[in-house]
Design a protein around this nucleic acid. Sequence first.
DNA 1: CACGTTGTTCAAAAAAGCTTGAACAAAATG
DNA 2: CATTTTGTTCAAGCTTTTTTGAACAACGTG
Lengths: 173, 173
Amino acid sequence: MSAARNTRSPLPEGGEAQSDLLDWEAGMIDVFVRAASLIGVPKSIGQIYGLLFCSEEPLPMDEIMDKLLISKGSASQGLKTLRGIGAVKPVYLIGDRRDHYTCEDKLRRLVGGFISDQVNPHLTSGSDRLDVIEAAIKRDNPENAKHALGRLKLLRSWHSKTKLFLPAVQKFL
Amino acid sequence: MSAARNTRSPLPEGGEAQSDLLDWEAGMIDVFVRAASLIGVPKSIGQIYGLLFCSEEPLPMDEIMDKLLISKGSASQGLKTLRGIGAVKPVYLIGDRRDHYTCEDKLRRLVGGFISDQVNPHLTSGSDRLDVIEAAIKRDNPENAKHALGRLKLLRSWHSKTKLFLPAVQKFL
DNA sequence: CACGTTGTTCAAAAAAGCTTGAACAAAATG
DNA sequence: CATTTTGTTCAAGCTTTTTTGAACAACGTG
């Protein structure tokens, strides 16, 4: 095998912070950042998840800050969100006061956590909104009430299809 | 049936533009705006789709502008995007030079259009990125190369599951 | 072919969302 | 209990995205 002093991503460094990511790590993190933005999740969260995905060991917050060059606020907030959807899990190491984190790497759980945290609440409140709309139609009784009720019915069918669909996603993945 | 002068949403009006949405329409549009933002689509696009969803007749751009109180630029740009994913269809009415639009109201087609326009391109380019990562691992041959390759393999499996999954979505909905 | 209508484009303004950093809380240490 | 370490919160700043509006292209029409 050919010699190789691991090529690293840009970012020359001066005093404290140091990126120190290998190319393959930077590449993977990039994949996660893109995937995150596709589903409307902030960059820093994709970065953190990606870094943990690459890491063989659980990482504490300050290492995450150093490697990704993000602020304490971002790191703390990002980990909070990731914990919330169950995408990272805290690991307690003896002899180290700091919380360490690993990523959840079962696709099914990742998706499940995201759905129940980010999607289901909207689905639930959506149901109430449809009831309000129905009330408005019946109250105002516009001349095209028949059409309006038809649309409402269609929307309700989309709603219930989606509710059936999401659990099915779990099984599939 | 009880008397009722249709209650309308806020927005007193002065000279030209007029919102003139009924409560039930405003409610439905709101549902679409929320759904749109859930999947990272701008508000104005959700509004336009919602308005067309409520309307019994195809609508021309200037009516859309007037009812939603949005600018010509937004309306034009929003319709362009919606046409792009096949969420609205142009309808040509004789005796009227203006293009009119109706919404696509088959859920399957809506979702299909969105996926092939917004998701598939990312999936495709993602595949190339994984190859680049693999090359980086083999080139640098870091001491944890075994672990790195394991992660890459996992990510590849997620990738192919997703590729299988998306067409399945179509059938289900 | 001059004119009015319809629709697109794009630079600048506005809005929305993310990140930062400093102040604060909590908890372990000596 | 004073001090240090670890982590959270949140207002202010910054970036990115969206919206606006005016200039311009396209196209019928008379």
